[in-house]
Amino acid sequence: MLNQMQVRLSATLKHAFLIIMSFVMFFPFLWMVTNSIKTRDEIWAFPPVWWPESPQWHHFIEAWNAAPFGLYIFNSAFTATVIVLIQLVNSAMMAYAFTQFRFKGKNVLFAIILGSYMVPVAATYVPSYVIISQLGLMDTHTAVIISNSISVFGIFLFRQAFLQVPYGLVEAARVDGASHWRILWQIIFPLTKPTFITLALISFIAMYNNYLWPSLILNSEDKLLITKGLRQFFIQEGAYGIQWPLIMAASTFAVAPLLFIFAIAQKWFVAAIGDRGLKE
């Protein structure tokens, strides 16, 4: 009886801790949403106003009409989607080579690839900028896509997942005359699908939120991503924070696509955490 009470108490404390931490993580977004429907005086009121006396829902319409946020969101979603697709294919093919092929220097090459993951991203900006400039790709979405087409994390993640696939399945497919391309996408891919979805979700969020590098190579108003678009709105329409309700409203519908995607893909994301490369 005492052991059961201890187990229940432990489970209760764990759930309480998780609920508190979940609220702490979610609170900034909740505060952003509530501030978007407050007046400027209510935002700066002390003690804080948790819910406005009269919600100003029109702030969303005003913010949407104040800048081409639809175009900004499309640009970010389009470039992020293309980058994700390229990264998935590249990472899968390289991971397949590292797990299914035998060649001299394989481990050394993989170590070099992992070592490049430790290089600060900012250290690559100058050479990447020079290369893109020489290729005549400045101020284009193509430059953003090409410069992010390889994911070292994706190669490592897929390699670990592919190692869990029984070698007998791959060998049987080879005996039947299946090509490497068919083995990869018809045998290995179905068994490691949660890993693909996890990388797609992580990479999409990272590329959608990417700010510094696109800001260096994109200048035209119609090419800006949502991150740079929000900054432009903060400086111009937001007047450096004077129009905080509009800034909060713009930030809310800029983040909304990411929340929608995560809500759809979360079950696969969670499944990949304990995925062993095989279907149960």
Rank of each mutant, 00 (worst) to 15 (best):
F78A: 11
Q134W: 07
P120T: 06
W51T: 10
F69G: 04
F103P: 08
A111P: 03
I83N: 07
W50I: 15
F103W: 12
G70K: 05
I113W: 01
T99W: 07
A80T: 00
L85C: 12
V121M: 12
L85A: 14
A122I: 07
V126A: 07
A97K: 06
A77G: 07
Q87F: 04
T140L: 03
W50H: 13
S54H: 12
L135M: 12
F101Y: 15
Y125V: 03
W57T: 05
P47H: 06
L137V: 06
A97G: 05
N107V: 05
T81S: 09
P68M: 06
E53V: 14
V89R: 02
L109K: 02
M138V: 13
T99M: 13
F46M: 15
A97Y: 01
F101Q: 10
I61D: 07
S54E: 08
I73V: 11
A80Q: 02
A77E: 05
L71F: 07
L137N: 05
K38H: 05
F110S: 01
P47C: 09
V126R: 00
P47V: 08
M118Q: 10
V84Q: 02
W51Q: 09
I112C: 07
I61E: 11
W44H: 15
A67C: 03
F46G: 10
Y125Q: 02
I132L: 11
N107L: 09
S133W: 05
T81V: 04
P52Y: 11
I112Y: 09
I132N: 00
I43F: 03
I132W: 00
E53C: 05
R40S: 15
T81K: 01
Y129R: 00
I112L: 13
V130I: 14
S91E: 04
I112R: 01
H59S: 13
K38V: 09
L88Y: 04
V130W: 07
F98N: 02
V126L: 14
L114Q: 04
P48M: 11
L114N: 03
I61F: 10
A92D: 03
T39P: 11
I61H: 11
F74D: 02
F98M: 07
I112E: 06
Y96M: 10
L114T: 00
I132R: 00
A63T: 01
Y129D: 00
F46L: 15
F98W: 02
K106A: 06
I37Q: 01
I112F: 08
V121A: 10
Y117W: 13
